[in-house]
Design a protein around this nucleic acid. Structure first.
Lengths: 349, 349
DNA sequence: CTGAAAGCGCTTACAG
DNA sequence: CTGAAAGCGCTTACAG
């Protein structure tokens, strides 16, 4: 009953009058066969367009060669980048990616994980919901978040990214900077803000403006009252995300404050539209390809070292990947006494 | 070798001294067993935390209960919404979603499809790349694009969405409108533009501004020269995507043209940040949940009617789902003689 | 109403 | 160097 569409090992075997075991070995390169037979078998397999049955292989080996990817509220526009990079890294390694969305709540995150496990994934990649600590899912696990997250496996070095931003703003001459975030309990945001602060020169001011706290990253709502900040002397707005930067930018422009002539705006994550708007946003990019590759590597290692059927341990080593600054606004603050427009080295105070 | 982590039918069977066949029947409700035995078996299964082996089931039945989702260049921010809705609809129906990204080229789209087929997906959902016509992938297929796309299965009614936008602008008193798109060969964009045009009253002007054509939806590049259009009398900019609307909005603001006091800007797709910027964007939303549900339904029907192993036919019936207008800018054009601010019914010309 | 048996397609010791 | 055989966990006729 219920036969497959494609040819099977059996069909190759009988076409060549050899055993299935021999065909299997030839294709996998495991038993040592004569080079001649191996070639004949491989040619026949190609000719027939043989594809191994994942189901049979999985049943036999106890491994599905499928990984689960659990993402938090998908409203976060970073999702596509990560999903794309993970899918690429996984398929390069011969694995498929089953997605599961944990939108809404921590409970749904648990559901998502369970759904994946029921589908026999070999391991799970997760970008955890805020404040969640994923401990043991009974399967090898890789956590992608921030270096500050307990048992994180891989992440961007958000702190260092923050340093890049502040160094850049300071080199332009900015000394009074408003940092914008929306969630004081997000490790990612705190790392970015911490990094920025750590590079503020003596005498500089950097106050954090926490916009209203929403579960999802894009809080709608009351204006941020940025004009007051400008009047108070702020010359730069450094947001922890391009989303917040966009919100700040449009609000400033709407209030008639020219950007970047009067104030600069920077963000994080270099989202799809960041280069496209006017003015384009200076931003900091994570190396999603490397993060994905490292996450997959760590996960596969955990999978391959644990015998199937074992309750896999959480992978232990944490690595953090440097971020890159993408400069698109290079205007110096207008009222700081500096000599030239382009990034003076000195400290004009 | 390579046993599973969880309990098997066999373990339940021997714990209860019945046969595996009986356990299988009890759990699936297929053979008719005594209510009493059925209950005992189910309780035992729950107690042991039984999860069926997908691999074994797939091998036996010839169905993996996994669907593939192929997405075009993921730079399109609509992706998360769709992926989320599809994943939800699929998991409700007991299916998993394996993702494959066709970023870059048509060749990669083919690769993506092949990767999914090699993983034995039961069917494929695809948002095709521009200009691609997916004909036969040897597996049931559902195409999500525009009603104008040949063999589309489900899509939003982009034409009707365009009508909503134009009706709204016209009701506010706008008569000179610039339509913004970036790809004249996109069915989606053409439908939206066609719909908008179809509702332009006699005497109204609606010229299309095609911004430079990129594979990906967010073309960076030269300014759009919108100020000239404003000087020429345009009072509204209606883009085929929030992305283009954002680009227009920031460019106008940057040029010192107040939005929406002087001109209005509308988009499409109601992206995450559309409500958050200043001013918020009037937009048109697709009902992704319904689209996903219909796509999954059509696909599952095709899967269930074709015996496994058959080259599944492309599903035939096309349905299109109405879009919804989300009004966020209600300012009438300043120099059109109208009586009140809020959407006069007459035609002030 | 319940069970014995075959078989889905593969891989892996093991024997020849 | 190659093959016969067992078995992964399930489902489905079929027999009792």
């Amino acid at each position: 009953m219920a036969s497959r569409s494609g040819p099977t090992l059996n069909m190759i075997a009988s076409a060549l009058d050899v055993s299935v075991a021999t065909v299997s070995n030839a294709l996998s390169g495991k038993g040592r066969l004569s080079a001649e037979l191996t070639k004949r078998i491989r040619d026949k397999a190609d000719e027939l367009g043989y594809t191994p049955s994942q189901a049979a292989r999985a049943l036999r080996t106890g491994r599905s060669r499928v990984l689960g990817l659990v993402l938090p509220d998908i409203a976060n526009p970073l999702f596509p980048q990560i999903a794309q990079a993970i899918e690429y890294a996984a398929s390069t390694a011969g694995y498929g990616i089953l997605i599961a969305d944990s939108r809404g709540s921590v409970a749904m995150q648990t559901d998502a994980i369970n759904r994946l496990i029921e589908r026999d994934v070999d391991g799970i990649l997760i970008v955890p919901r805020l404040g969640t600590r994923i401990v043991d899912v009974g399967r090898p696990l890789a956590v992608i978040d921030s270096p500050s997250t307990p048992n994180s496996t891989v992440s961007a070095d958000h702190w260092q990214g923050g340093q890049l931003v502040m160094e850049h703003l300071v080199s332009l001459g900015h000394r009074h900077i408003v940092l914008i975030g929306n969630n004081p309990s997000s490790n990612v945001q705190n790392d970015r803000i911490g990094g920025m602060r750590s590079r503020l020169p003596p005498g500089g001011r950097a106050q954090v403006l926490w916009i209203e706290q929403h579960e999802d990253i894009c809080g709608k709502g009351a204006p941020l009252q940025l004009v007051e900040r400008v009047n108070a002397g702020a010359t730069a707005f450094a947001a922890v995300s391009d989303l917040h930067a966009l919100r700040a930018l449009t609000e400033l422009q709407n209030a008639g404050i020219p950007v970047p002539a009067r104030v600069s705006v920077t963000g994080f994550d270099d989202l799809a539209w960041s280069a496209m708007i006017t003015p384009a946003l200076t931003s900091v990019r994570m190396d999603v390809a490397s993060i994905a590759r490292l996450a997959i590597e760590a996960l596969l290692q955990a999978i391959e070292s644990d015998p199937p059927g074992t309750t896999g341990a959480v992978t232990a080593e944490t690595s953090s990947v440097p971020m890159t600054l993408v400069v698109r606004q290079t205007t110096a603050p207008p009222f700081v006494p500096i000599n030239n427009q382009n990034a003076p080295e000195g400290e004009p105070a």
